[in-house]
Simulated assay, not measured.
Amino acid sequence: MNVMNNNIEETLPLYVNGRLDAEERRQVEKAMAENPDLAGEVEFLQALKDTLQQSADEPPVELGLARLKRDIQQETVDSSPTSANTRRYWKPLALAACLLLAIQTGFQLTPQSTDSDWAPLSGETASQAPRLQIAFHTNATVEQINESLGASEARIVDGPGALGLYTVQLPPDSDVDAIHRQLEGLPFIEEVSAP
């Protein structure tokens, strides 16, 4: 190898590792004597070589990092067919769910039939008679309730509900306001309201 023909800085690692013949070594040493920067570079390379030789029993950090990256990449490659199958599996399910949602929304937005011929199966028809809701005190007796409702010809048609309210139906031609005031005045009635 002819050192003169090559860049002297490129031959410095070969000089530190003892890979140059006698003539090439002499030329590098002459260049180092003329240029103190080259001598500093040789010192640095020699220190680096010594450090690496001392820690030869421990793998360098870069080698460990490269091994870790390789293992992660291998895991990614190995697991990709599974994730591809998973991706193919949920797409039809998502499509079916969207279709079902669209159909359900269509049914909800469709106007409902307004036939007036509908009637309850029990045979009862909706009464046009006025109604009131009454809450009785807990100490009210059956006799008191019967007397107060009998005076106005009202009858209990529903109750008690979850809130303790009874629904009372009045005769069709009755004065609702007068009966309302009369019932509110009784001491065993807590509240009277229109439904």
Rank of each mutant, 00 (worst) to 15 (best):
M4D: 11
N5W: 02
E9R: 12
Y15A: 00
G18V: 08
A22V: 06
R25E: 05
R25Q: 09
R25K: 06
R26L: 11
R26W: 05
M32Y: 06
L38A: 02
G40V: 03
E41N: 02
V42C: 05
V42K: 02
E43G: 02
F44P: 00
L45C: 03
K49F: 08
T51K: 13
T51V: 12
T51M: 13
L52Y: 06
Q53M: 12
Q54C: 10
S55W: 13
L63Y: 06
L65K: 09
A66M: 10
A66W: 08
R70A: 14
R70M: 11
R70W: 10
E75I: 07
T76I: 11
P81N: 14
A84C: 01
R87G: 04
A94Y: 04
A94V: 10
C98E: 02
L99E: 00
L99P: 00
L101F: 14
Q104M: 12
Q104I: 11
Q104G: 15
G106S: 12
F107S: 04
L109W: 10
T110M: 15
T110L: 15
Q112S: 13
Q112D: 06
S113I: 14
S116E: 15
S116L: 15
D117L: 15
A119F: 15
L121I: 08
T125S: 14
S127G: 15
A129P: 04
A129M: 07
R131W: 09
L132R: 01
I134V: 15
A135L: 15
F136C: 06
T141Q: 03
V142P: 05
N146I: 06
S148D: 01
S152E: 08
E153V: 01
D158M: 07
D158V: 04
A162V: 14
L165C: 04
Y166N: 00
Y166E: 00
Y166S: 01
V168N: 01
Q169A: 14
Q169V: 12
D173K: 14
S174A: 15
S174P: 07
D175I: 05
A178F: 09
A178I: 11
R181P: 03
R181W: 10
R181Q: 14
R181F: 13
Q182N: 07
F188R: 05
I189P: 00
V192Q: 00
S193Y: 08
S193W: 09
